[in-house]
Design a protein around this nucleic acid. Sequence first.
DNA 1: AACCCGTGGCC
DNA 2: TGGCCAAGGGT
Length: 299
Amino acid sequence: MTTSPPRPAPIDGETLVDWFAATARPLPWRAPGVTGWGVLVSETMLQQTPVNRVLPIWEEWMRRWPRPSDLAAASQGEVLRAWGKLGYPRRAQRLHQAAAAIAADHGDVVPADVDTLLALPGIGAYTARAVAAFAYGKRVPVVDTNVRRVVARAVHGAGDAGPPSTTRDLADVDALLPAEDAPAAALSAALMELGQVVCAVRSPACERCPIAADCAWQHAGRPAYAGPPKKVQKFAGTDRQVRGKLLDVLRDSPGPVRREQLDAVWSDAGQRDRCLDSLLVDGLVEQTDDDRFALPGEH
DNA sequence: AACCCGTGGCC
DNA sequence: TGGCCAAGGGT
């Protein structure tokens, strides 16, 4: 069949890469000489956490633990303290575990192969490809929430991305990448940056967009998002909030604390106990011989 | 697929 | 104020 005309490429990769080269923020993990380890730490910290909050913590971690084996040698409690209030402390716990595996099984060097990365704790579809592309310059589709939004708008003409589908999302982005490793990796970085600083969720800065002339969403008159409603998770009153309060007490204490100190942070005793139990099960908290509670390895 | 997992800033 | 969002991953 030849009746289907070729669809014009809505994303001009070279234009986008040039724009990135001229305007990219000088984030420290993008600096020359940053290792795969530095990139992995940054990508893990950036999961669901804004850049500005990650910056000082990443600097501290790189100074303190410049290699995976350095982090692996630290106690879990030290790692959780250094993670501070970045949120989702299980990310820190899994990064600690990944560091131990990298030190033991991969010569203390973060792997460059996507499947090898995926086998490490806390590294999923996004982070594995981000490390392969940004640390090692590989041609792999890197799909995060920003890239999904850019593709939804520029390629599909929709107001925003619908529900994620790893397989379809990877294929969409793969189709945009040039054949060679280096330019593909450069485009991956540029797509993410565009989604963050220009093609934003609210009030996108289309007047500053380097590819606005080819954007399907522009041509369609910038229609509003028409997909299924996105579910927003509650936080106030949830176990997540209570676990955070409990852990905050332990982070603020130099050593083990008594049960009463933990009881003070939440009035609902049933929920409090359930959350403390879950933290013990998760290995984020340990109970001492005298029935006090501490961060793992700190008693 | 749907739900759980922290934290803080913005409008 | 409270919904919404932020470079996701695990189950």
